[in-house]
């Protein structure tokens, strides 16, 4: 309905009218702040760990594994120069042949979640699917970080 609203505003004498087609869905999926009654409920954007280990396609797995261990992670996200998520290295791959590239070892197109998902919703989903960690990206695919089930469970038991 925003196209009609934009045209209507123009007929009402507004000289510079824009229409944001992506709207609220696009805005909140990018992790940008909202106002209103529901805005206070905790969402993934608040609990995501942004320090997850990232690797380039050409990085040797051995080198990525060393960095991950130093950062306290047993997984790493493979991204391009723009920070877009391309793949994921799990512990099995990080412990594998250290000389292959991240691109050769990674799992392609890992499942991701948006930063505007409610913590309560995600906690249930991670329990149901038995996930311990999950990558969080914007709707454009840009990595924001990783959520840990233990973080979600800890934050949802706090009143």
């Amino acid at each position: 309905m925003s196209p009609r609203a934009a045209w209507r505003l123009e007929t009402l004498g507004f000289k510079e009218v824009y229409e944001y087609r992506g709207g609220k869905a696009d805005w909140s999926a990018a992790g940008l702040p909202m106002e209103g009654k529901l805005a206070a409920a905790p969402r993934l954007g608040k609990v995501v760990r942004r320090d997850v280990t990232r690797a380039g396609l050409e990085d040797p797995v051995g080198e990525v594994a060393k960095r991950a261990t130093a950062d306290g992670w047993d997984t790493a996200l493979v991204v391009n120069r723009e920070g877009i998520l391309l793949g994921r290295l799990y512990k099995t791959q990080l412990d594998g042949d250290p000389n292959v590239t991240a691109e050769a070892a990674m799992e392609n197109g890992p499942s991701t979640f948006r930063p505007d998902v409610y913590v309560s919703q995600m906690t249930r989903l991670m329990r149901d699917k038995d996930l311990d960690t999950a990558p969080v990206t914007t709707s454009d695919g840009m990595v924001l970080g990783m959520v840990l089930r233990e973080d979600l469970e800890a934050s949802s038991t706090t009143p």
Partner: peptide, 28 residues
């Protein structure tokens, strides 16, 4: 300003000379 109520009177609170951006939920 809900679309159904968008008219000269409801838009009166806005500045017609400043840029205005309309949005809804998504592509609907």
């Amino acid at each position: 300003i809900p679309l159904k109520e968008l008219d000269a009177s409801s838009a009166g609170s806005l500045d017609p000379d400043a840029p205005v951006i309309a949005y809804c939920f998504d592509y609907q």
